[in-house]
Amino acid sequence: MSETDTSAPLLEAKNVVVEFPMKGFRKAPFRVLHGVSLDIHPGETVGLVGESGSGKTTIGRAILGLVEPAAGTITFDGQDITRLHRKERRKLSDSIQVVFQDPYTSLNPTMTVGDILSEPLLVKADLKGSARTRIRELLDQVGLPSGAVDKFPREFSGGQRQRVAIARALALSPRLVVCDEPVSALDLSTQARVLDLFIEIQERTGVAYLFVSHDLSVVRHISHRVAVMYKGNIVEYGDGDQVTSEPVHPYTQKLLMSAPVANPVRQRERRIERHTMLAASSKEGHN
């Protein structure tokens, strides 16, 4: 890869609009995304933070081809992938991959870890033969013993399952992985270790991440750049440090002030700061 590659975005979303049909006859569809634009460079992590219903998961699913945008374009490596046919979309499986939030439902409970990891390899004819060696390699990369191949997901803890899901995403050496809240179902100590695994893999392989999370501190830890979503729009997009430490947009400020800090003294200060901020903004609202 040349230096110019890093300057051209790997993935670019422009004014993406997604609507869900409403139940009932002739009801107007519900607009989840109101024209979202986003770019991710090779080897970069873009964090996407927002509350429930903000549309952060939907943009990830649109990039994965699991929902179809009503308007806007998504380009990957120069190719328009907004509305690909199933067949063409399948060819993208070695470029864009996914790690979902819930490691309990993202792994089929009736399949062994070996079966799960060989699934992406099945599609690529040239990889079928070397599948066993590849699976061993993958397990090693995510820090699981090779004996895990013959075990079932329920024999593992949440953190270990998420490692299996990461291994599955890496199987075809993708260039972009959409991570949809991959650590929010995990315990605190597990969460930190899995995040470090993500960073370590990225530094080794140069994969790019779109990292979706509701937790500002998680996003800050892993992201080069951060986008903040609110009600279907990106309200702030910039360097991770700036967005998560000195946000400009009032919503991001509120988000930051609302998250309690694990320190009673500092939390007391933050609380007072938040109340002052809220009082000021409500005053503004009245005027």
């Binding site: 994965l64 081809g65 699991l66 199933r86 979309r89 399948r90 060819k91 993208l92 499986s93 070695d94 864009i96 991959q97 996914v98 979902f100 939030q101 819930d102 439902t105 993202s106 792994l107 089929n108 699934e119 992406p120 099945l122 599609v123 899901a165 599955r168 199987a171 075809l172």
Partner: peptide, 16 residues
């Protein structure tokens, strides 16, 4: 289930 979404992203056909 999410694992069917994952299979789709992995490039599996409907029949598979």
């Amino acid at each position: 289930e999410l694992y069917v979404d994952a299979a789709r992203v992995s490039g599996l056909s409907d029949a598979r």
